[in-house]
Design a protein around this nucleic acid. Structure first.
Lengths: 341, 341
DNA sequence: ATTTTTTTTGCAACCAATTTCATAAAAGGT
DNA sequence: ACCTTTTATGAAATTGGTTGCAAAAAAAAT
């Protein structure tokens, strides 16, 4: 009982003495087949180590049971280092896909590169998840491609007014509030923000606004000089903080738009002879693994990556099914550690 | 010039005034078509946003242009935390696949679970990459499935004598040597090893043997009591070190089988009032991101994940092509940081 | 026993490409 | 001008399933 090459449904049909259509139905547990027949077919299929050919099946049904994830890398140079936050997301998305019975096609994209692959993948997968798209301005224009193709996709990122795509994001505004509240209750009112607070990085911008609004509600001002531009890397955080200090901006509380920035900032502070948290309280954003390992350990606004992955997949699947869905906002959570007093 | 639904090669054929076969040839740049015709077909294909249907193409050619990676998770409980080393590998494998024009199908497996997916995937992909298989004894028996099916696969792990699968691995023995040499030249001869030094974890075992052999070549003994069993988690490293100290084993140098173990070990040492590196020198293995962030920063044996990913993919592709290939050993490199003097 | 209804089954079309084989067109040789 | 070779093209088979439709078999109703 062994066929050369892989067994096909025809082989099973032959051994079971039924037609190939019946085999197909039996294996998909269609109610149209007799229980006895079904059992016999299944037995033979198992014996032959038979598996449905996905290509044939997908071709016929015009589905792929596959989602694609496009991970845009920060242009940090070092090839092998991916933003750990995205790596976590990748893990949870993979799991969420598996749970739903979907395969996940992973591809990494250089942000600078032309978006060919995202387009290619749109033909291999039922839907796409976009992660870490870099500069929002570039992203926005490229979005048009996907929209024009009527590709189903969801995106991890800020919920921007009038944005044409469907997003899942952390409540960045709320996260900024949490940070501000923490500083206020610790009586640290001399605050700075490190991160790109412009429309180029809507997530950072939203965090900043939540932070700023909350401070202002307590009559604390955040001057222009108290915002230092930085992208989400340790180096960038280091340099931004460094130049802030070099400009004689004095502060006792620092809110970084991401943990990587915060780690760089702490390094700069230490080098300047300032101690954390005594001289400066520091709060980051993301809760990457390193946040718990550095000294002092980093207080940070945690994004629930497990939930995020699930929601991205769930929403995408709903979108594919044609259901009407809306943007999703996930609750942030402040993780208190040593970098705040 | 717009068809309902996705454009097919027939649509292009129609607009170009040629047959569908010619379209297929033209798009694959077959030498059988006239340059003029080819150009015309390409133009129309571009205009129609046409992409070859992978399902149809793969079905016909009986290939998938896809590799699958099976990531076995450590049974650590916390769902969302994946061993960061493997996450890095995932990143570099993804890149290597992209470079070779292959898609990568990712799936996570609970080690305890029955290996169904690996089998399933063997039908969707041309080959499989296995990563982090947990207990080697269990793994070995399950390997038979893959071998029986004549599935093409490569594995990241120790090169074990008589092992039936093809592996790519770091030179674990050499890594152990590096650690020992470092201790010796720092005149630290009271060494311990933390990690499962048994055939259940061949990688760890090999690191241990390289370590031990080198010490013995310098007439330094490593007693039984100086090896504490641990799996690759921070907690496990913490507890192993803790019990070593509780048993009054004294030492001035500690080699951990992985960075996570080392991080846990350092925590235990600190709690016991021992300082690193003054009282105890510590060396880890892997060079995960956290190794650079902890205090003191961790001296460690780096595994080149970028190269590892490339070799895994390259070897697997060679295997698929039917080429004769052999196990690959990658050179380790000692990264000196603060945890050694 | 006969008709009606229900349950199972098989035939054949279909999905979108690749590829073999036959043939038409163009080029080359004498 | 005629035959041979080369080049370019199309018709049709093929890949392995899924599914609409028709028909056969079994069960139920009269």
């Amino acid at each position: 009982m062994k066929t050369k090459g892989k067994a096909t449904s025809f082989d099973i049909a032959h051994y079971a003495g039924v037609s190939q259509s019946t085999v197909s139905r039996a294996l998909r547990n269609s109610p149209l087949v007799n229980d006895e027949t079904r059992k016999k077919v299944w037995e033979i299929a198992n014996k032959l180590n038979y598996k449905v050919d996905k290509n044939a099946s997908n071709l016929r049904t015009q589905q792929s049971a596959t989602l694609a994830i496009l991970l845009f890398e920060d242009p940090t140079g070092d090839e092998s280092q991916i933003n750990p936050f995205f790596l976590n997301m990748l893990g949870s998305i993979t799991r969420a896909c598996a749970k739903e019975g979907y395969d996940l096609l992973v591809s990494f994209q250089s942000i600078s590169q032309d978006w060919r692959a995202e387009y290619e993948d749109s033909h291999r997968a039922d839907g796409i998840i976009l992660l870490g798209y870099g500069d929002y301005m570039d992203y926005q224009s490229r979005l048009q491609n996907l929209l024009a193709q009527n590709t189903k996709f969801v995106c991890w990122g800020a919920t921007v007014e009038g944005r044409p795509d469907l997003t899942v994001s952390c409540d960045n505004y709320g996260g900024g509030q949490l940070a501000a509240q923490n500083f206020i209750s610790a009586n640290r009112t001399n605050c700075v923000f490190i991160g790109d607070a412009s429309e180029h990085s809507p997530e950072f911008l939203t965090r900043f606004i939540g932070f700023k609004d909350t401070l202002e509600q307590h009559d604390i001002a955040l001057g222009e000089r108290c915002v230092a531009n930085a992208i989400s890397t340790e180096e960038s955080g280091y340099h931004a903080t460094h130049s802030l200090l070099a400009n004689n901006v004095s502060f006792d509380a620092l809110f970084a738009a991401s943990d990587l920035i915060a780690i760089g900032a702490i390094k700069a502070l230490k080098e300047a002879g300032l101690s954390v948290p005594e001289d400066v309280n520091v709060i980051g954003f993301d809760n990457i693994a390193a946040a718990n390992y550095i000294t002092p350990s980093l207080t940070t606004v945690q994004q629930n990556t497990t939930l995020a992955g699930q929601m991205l997949v769930q929403n995408l699947l709903a979108l594919i099914k044609g259901e009407q869905i809306t943007d999703t906002l996930l609750p942030p959570k402040l993780i208190r550690r040593q970098s705040t007093s």
